[in-house]
Each structure stands twice: as C-alpha cells, then as structure tokens.
Design a protein around this nucleic acid. Structure first.
Lengths: 183, 183
DNA sequence: GATTAATGATTTCTACGCAAATCGTTTTTC
DNA sequence: GAAAAACGATTTGCGTAGAAATCATTAATC
C-alpha cells in the first residue's frame, strides 16, 4: 500500500466526515424549526413513495439498519405521523402508512440540505453537476456492502434476483470478511 | 427549485448515506477484530500527529463536536491508550498525550476502510482518482459549515452582505477540475 | 480587588446507528 | 402434525453525534 494511496484514503474520509457533520448539524436545525430530523424526514418520504410498506423494505430503501429504522418509526408514530398495523395474511409483517398529519407534515417539508447549498449546486454548470454526482456514486458503489454481499451470494449459490433483495440479514451471518490481522 | 435539482439532492444524499453506512459497518468489524472503532482510531491518529494537543484542536481537526470528542477520549483513556493532564499554565486546558500502549496500538493499526475497497481504489487510473477526490472535496466545501461561517464572519466585518457572497475560487480551494472530459 | 465576563472542557439530553439476542409467527421437514 | 428451521420485527447493549447547560479557571471591568 503506497503512501499516496494511504493519504488518499485519509482525504476521502475527511471529506466524508465534513459532509456528514454538515448534515448532522442541519438535522438539528430541522428538528428545531420544523419538528423532524433529517433521517425522520427521509424515512417519512420513503413511506410516502410506496405505502403501505414494511420496515424491511424501508431499511434497504434508505440504507439504514433494521433496528435504526424501528427507532425512527417509533418516534414518527409517537408524533402521530405514521400508523403501524398487522392486518395482512402474514401477521409477522407490519404495514406502515402515513396518517393525515403525516401527509400534511410532508406537504410543508423543507429540503434536507441548506438553501445556500442548493443555490451553490444550482450555480454549477451541467457537466459539473453530472461529474460530481457520477464520482460520488462511483465511490459509493465501491464501498457499498450490500453490492458486495449480493455479488458474493450470487456467486455462491444461484439465488432468485427478486428473493435476494433483502435476504441477507437473518440466518448464518454473512461471510466474516476478515482480512485484518491484529497484534 | 427545479425537479432536477431536487432529485440531484436526493441522489447525493443516498450516495452519502451508502458510504456512511459502509464505514459504520466497517467500524464494528474494526472494534471486534482490532479493539477500536473508526472514530477512535481517527482521533488516536490525530493525537499522534501533534501531541500534546487539546480537545478543542482535536475537535476541529477531525470535524467532530466537542462533546463527541470528549466521549471518544473517555473510552481511549479507559483503555489506557491516552493520558489527560492539566500541567500547563492555563489550568483549564487539558493536554492529551499517547501512552506507550497507545503508540503500540497505532503501530499495528489496520486501515479504516476495507482492503477490498483499497484495492478497487488502487485499480483506478490516476486521473480517475484525482477526479473523484476533487469532486468529493468540492462538494464537501460547498456543504462545510465552518467555511460558511468563516465567510459570513468575513463578510460581516468588511463588506456589505450582497456584494461578495458569490464567487471565490479561493486560496485553499481544491483544483477546479477543468478540461477533463469524461468517457 | 471583588464582581463580571469569557473560555476550555465536561455533563446532560435526545437521537441516530449497528450487532446480537429475542419474540411471535409462518414454513419446512420428518 | 409436531419439532425444527426460517423469517419479520423489536429489544438490548454499546458507541457515536450535536445543542444547551454546567463547572472550573482565567481575563476584563469597575
């Protein structure tokens, strides 16, 4: 591993931390001024897109762990913005829907990112936006665990694409991806 | 706010969430196999770079809030990897140093990102790495709260708000990815 | 020179965020 | 058709993560 590669990692991590922090801080402002945090707003929007929906689908949709989604749903339900029912045939799955209050909340929802960021984004040239997004997505794909696991699962045994969507949580824990030897 | 801008925000947020999640998951693996989480390792490295150091400096160095750094330092101290003393003139500031155990820990430290990601990164062409990093840093600068606040403070002190708000291709800015044409 | 203001760090509070364990409910297997 | 396996969701445990309040110490003000 060359020095340049090492410092590249450090610079990538620093840029990511900056952005994550910016979003976290913005999230506090959202909670104060609007009543929902960024993750809550993101999950609420995901529900609106495809209600009724299960927490497993939401989890893979917003790229959050199942327990994390459960916590966010608890807060949304407590505020009366969503509704959880077990009406279907399979009484294990929970069907999540927006309430009217939830729909109203979404109607007046602000942007997750700050307005001045949006402005800066809009001020870019088309090809710049395209290039930035492409770079970001390429990096994300390189890191994404889901893609890796899916590929491995596919290689290991032939799984139906539709069934493979969110099947890597339960059972015998994914391959232990350990390449770190430690003193 | 155009539709395209709006979906651009959503795609940016999704890519960021993917990467943050990948790092969080990796962090668990690190804790299990190596004994430190990603933030702990990052802070420990920052201490090594400039000991003795105060928590305020660390905070701005790793882009984490002061309370967050305090918590991480507590865990590092509990594991005997660092030492906090109040020896200086100003008895408010705490001087943070590595212990021998901390130095040894760092000596055998793994990379924060997974090896297979590093491999993928190394497999890229030079101009691809450059472009990805430049895009990432440009986006980070556009979001960065610190930079915004600094700019605002500067504007308040010296200039009327409307005048200089727009364009600065400033000193520390990353290279402006100019004549790269993307395949 | 005592009160007040400012400063460095921590504490308190709420909200993520993930892994492993757990609970209730199907589905499989024999 | 009962035991076992699988599955969806939640709970538990630990570690971030930031704002506001607090504590201890130093600087500023009168």
């Amino acid at each position: 591993m060359s020095d340049s590669t090492f410092s590249l990692e450090a610079e990538i991590l620093e840029a990511l931390r900056k952005m994550t922090r910016a979003i976290d801080i913005r999230s506090r402002t959202l909670l104060l001024n609007y009543g929902l945090t960024a993750p809550q707003l993101t999950v609420l929007r995901a529900i609106a897109r495809q209600e009724p929906v299960t927490s497993a689908v939401l989890s893979s949709d917003v790229h959050l762990g199942r327990p994390t989604v459960t916590g966010i749903l608890n807060r949304l339900e407590l505020r009366g913005l969503i509704q959880r029912t077990k009406e279907g045939e399979d009484r294990r799955s929970v069907h999540i829907r927006l309430t009217d209050a939830g729909r109203q909340m979404l109607a007046g929802a602000p942007s997750v990112l700050r307005d001045d960021f949006q402005k800066k984004l809009a001020a870019l040239k088309d090809w710049e936006r395209t290039q930035i997004l492409a770079s970001l997505q390429r990096l994300a794909d390189m890191m994404d665990v889901r893609a890796l696991e899916a590929a491995e699962a596919f290689a290991d045994d032939f799984v139906q694409p539709s069934a493979a969507a969110d099947q890597f949580d339960g059972a015998g824990s994914p391959p232990t991806l350990d390449d770190d030897s430690v003193p």
